[in-house]
Amino acid sequence: MTVLIKHIHKTIVLAIALTMVFSCKNNFEDVKKIGISENAPIGIAENMNLKYTDSGRVTALLRSPKMLDFSNRDFPFSEFPDAVELDLFDENNQKSTITADYAIVYDKTGLIDMQGNVVLASPDNDTLFAEQLYYDQNREWLFTNQPVKFKSKGNILKGNIFDSNVEFTEGQLIESKEGVITVNE
C-alpha cells in the first residue's frame, strides 16, 4: 500500500511539473511593460541640444526645451511639445535654420513633422513660412501640402504645396495663389 501511495504522489508531482513546463511561455516583453502606461513616454529630456554627425562633420543641431521619448511604442517617435529649433548644415558648412512650435521625429522613417509657425531661413536669406513642414532626414528633402509663403531676394511667392531640397535649388511651389510680387526694400 505504501508503495502505491508513493507511486501516486510521484505521478501527481510529475503531472504538475509537466503542466508547469508546457504552460510557460516567453513573455519577457510583457514583463518589461508592467508599470508603463502605453500612452506615457518612456523618458523626458529637458533643455536638450542634440548634434547629428556624418563622417565627423556636424550635419544638424536640434534644440528644444522639452522632448518626450516614445521609443517604447511599436512605431517609435520623439515628441517636442514646447518648440524646436533645427539647424541644417550643407557640405560647405552653411546653415539653414528651421523653427516651429511643435515637432515629432519618427525614428523608423527619419521623418520630422514640424507644426505651428514654421519658419525656415536659408544662408541666402530666403525664408519659408508655413503652418506645417516635413523634413526627410534620409533624402535631405523638405515638403508640405499646406499653404506656404516663400520670400526670396525681394520676391514673395504664395502657394499650397512646397517641395524642395534643403538648398532650395530643386524647389517647387505648386498651386500658386498670387505669383511673384517684387518688394522694394
Rank of each mutant, 00 (worst) to 15 (best):
D87M: 06
Y52P: 00
L14Y: 10
A40H: 10
S37G: 14
L50Q: 08
G35F: 06
E91G: 00
F80W: 08
I8A: 06
T59E: 07
N184Y: 14
Q94M: 09
A121M: 07
V180E: 14
T53G: 05
A40E: 14
K149D: 04
K108P: 06
N165H: 08
A15Y: 00
R73A: 10
K66A: 00
F143P: 01
K25H: 04
D69T: 03
K151G: 02
P76I: 01
S55Q: 14
I34Q: 11
L62R: 05
V183H: 10
Y106E: 08
M20Y: 12
F70Q: 05
K33C: 04
S78F: 14
T53K: 08
T59H: 01
V118D: 00
R57H: 08
G110Y: 09
E167K: 11
D136G: 01
S71I: 01
M67R: 05
E131H: 01
N145H: 14
H9G: 00
T99Q: 12
P123D: 04
T11D: 10
L128K: 07
A130V: 01
K51C: 08
A100H: 03
M114T: 13
F89Y: 15
F22D: 03
D69G: 04
G56A: 01
I98Q: 05
E140V: 09
P41R: 04
N184L: 15
Q94V: 02
F129S: 07
D54Y: 05
G116H: 01
F129T: 06
S96H: 03
L50G: 00
G110R: 09
I42F: 07
L86F: 08
T59V: 15
R73Q: 15
P123C: 06
K32D: 08
K108S: 12
Y106M: 04
Y135I: 05
N39G: 11
T109A: 03
M67Y: 07
M1V: 10
N72H: 12
N49Q: 08
H9E: 04
I42P: 00
D136L: 03
V13Y: 07
K158R: 13
Y102E: 03
T99F: 07
I34D: 02
I44R: 05
D101N: 13
Y106N: 05
K177Q: 11
G171E: 04
N26D: 14
V21F: 14
V3S: 09
L4A: 11
D74H: 09
G116K: 02
L68I: 07
G116C: 02
I5Q: 07
E131P: 02
S176P: 00
F129L: 14
P123E: 03
D107T: 09
N165F: 10
T182G: 13
V148E: 02
F143L: 04
K158E: 12
L173N: 06
E178S: 12
T53C: 03
A15E: 01
I36S: 09
K51F: 13
M20E: 06
L128A: 06
